[in-house]
Design a protein around this nucleic acid. Sequence first.
DNA 1: CTGAAAGCGCTTACAG
DNA 2: CTGAAAGCGCTTACAG
Lengths: 345, 345
Amino acid sequence: MKRPTIKDIARESGYSKTAVSFAFNDPSRISDKACQQILETAERLGYIPDPMARNFSLRRHLSIGFLLPQVVQYSLQNPYTMQVILGIGSVCEKYGYTLNLIPPLHKSITEAVRAAAVDGLITMGLQVDMDIVSVMKTRLLPYVTIDGIPHEEMPSVNIDDEKASYSLMKMVLDAGHTKLVIIGLSDDAFATEQNSNSVPANRLAGYKRALGDAGIACQAYQQFVCECTLADGIRIGKQILELADRPSCIVTMSDIVAIGCIQAFKAAGLHVPDDISVVGFDNIDEASCISPALTTVDQPAKEKGRLAAEALFKILNKESLASAHMQIPYTVIKRESLKTLSSIS
Amino acid sequence: MKRPTIKDIARESGYSKTAVSFAFNDPSRISDKACQQILETAERLGYIPDPMARNFSLRRHLSIGFLLPQVVQYSLQNPYTMQVILGIGSVCEKYGYTLNLIPPLHKSITEAVRAAAVDGLITMGLQVDMDIVSVMKTRLLPYVTIDGIPHEEMPSVNIDDEKASYSLMKMVLDAGHTKLVIIGLSDDAFATEQNSNSVPANRLAGYKRALGDAGIACQAYQQFVCECTLADGIRIGKQILELADRPSCIVTMSDIVAIGCIQAFKAAGLHVPDDISVVGFDNIDEASCISPALTTVDQPAKEKGRLAAEALFKILNKESLASAHMQIPYTVIKRESLKTLSSIS
DNA sequence: CTGAAAGCGCTTACAG
DNA sequence: CTGAAAGCGCTTACAG
């Protein structure tokens, strides 16, 4: 039981392979009669041109890849990432491409990039000195990074994380909080080393600048580091509960972590925000529907995906990008999870 | 600026293409010296074997496809579908495959299937007489359907929608509701015609059986049909508000629709469930965190994806399936959105 | 251990 | 309008 090929249709219909190919791709190049006979034969034998052979011959995949920054369980569990994927997906659809989600291969993201059968890649949290980048360059694979470290050779989509974090922390301080815990994010799985310009680093910088401006010593806060998952948020939340000197506010870098903390606090019988405040980052859908609703930074995840994908298609079409480093607006949103202790205006 | 090919490495290293291929795929077939020289040459020239050529030669894609049942904006906006994708994705990762999300091509899902460069497909809501199915058969493309209509030639993963719906409706009736609106789901975009065994049809059958058992006439309820999106839920919610005789409970077939209704009701100043009850279906993450928390049917979406993918890989590996029609358990969950009017026990 | 050659299923420049 | 042939970049059975 084998599928018929173009050769079978040629033989069976009495025309050449060339003619068969034209019947499917450019009927105007052959006579109506030939076209009709060929298509009829194809129908009869159950012939559908092999997409891979076609793509191979045309040197294209009609697919762009989204490199999952972590294992599937983490990446796709994160609503923020999902929103990014939604944005990319809608652009793929528009251009008639598929969206290939690429998990680590044999635990290695670099391996996955070597083997990726796509026309271009969208990645998250990339810095230019990573192995992955050199593989993409070697393969001449166009790419755009979201939440990565902007670099000449690397088109990127970001918000101004430092400023956004500054504003968020300022809101926390203005609400009268002085005993803080900051929960940072570990750099992405494929980071070669901590970089002073990564998203987590920029957010931390923003938090610190706000603290500095408010004249609050760095000793005033403790710092934790966390994977960007609900489970790790819960874990850290429990650790915080054991602190001798309980903070009045937890400043995270991700809603999913903030929600994890809140769950841990609730489970321990604490009331948020009366006993302890928590602020997030991202404004995922859940942020507004949980109770208490999260104070957070709204970053347009879908728009990030959309912009990155549009940029990638521009590159694929050899058009030049208006700007290689796209920065889009954010909004700080005050909701219930941050309690106002006293006005220090 | 062209990428070097195996031929370039052969010429440059002084070995044959065969040797170069072995250096990358089966080093034991050549001498250590040859292997070393070849890999070194490859490194120097920046050679990475072309994945597409490799896959083409090996007659495989190392990718399975998930056929989006609607346009991206709808499909990926639905948390239930996202959970299914998460389940599929984790299995793909395990087997070293990528997960290709396939949107309609030129507005046609059938077109998309013709062009899909994948080893197999997972679909949602398929019935055997659809165009899509015949294309997959013609292409000899293995597939598994989730929430489709079980059929001999079509492996499937489902819950018992009729029974689940019966239980849900029974809970509604037991709570004393008699003035109902049922919001059905339109059959999937690619349904050729309404089928008496589709998921929406089965759920409706379950609802009706419960009504019948309770001796409630069909006149007691009105029926609407809705796209499975938040926006359409809101739209229908508004329509319901304009009904002369307001129902006491809205029975939907999807949490996302239920949430849409609740939003519409809240916006109109109604209180759920005091003024009107709403029940959902799916138990997406949001169902438990919104206020009021949704009474709904918990169906294990992630598990559905996982099972479907495992079955597909079995087929790809020519293993036989223990059973072609997998049915997994559900749970009816009572939460706040359903008000108890009176006990009719 | 090594390499020439056929093959995977298409597309397309070219000649008739 | 039509078709023989080269080419896309690999793999691998086969012979030496």
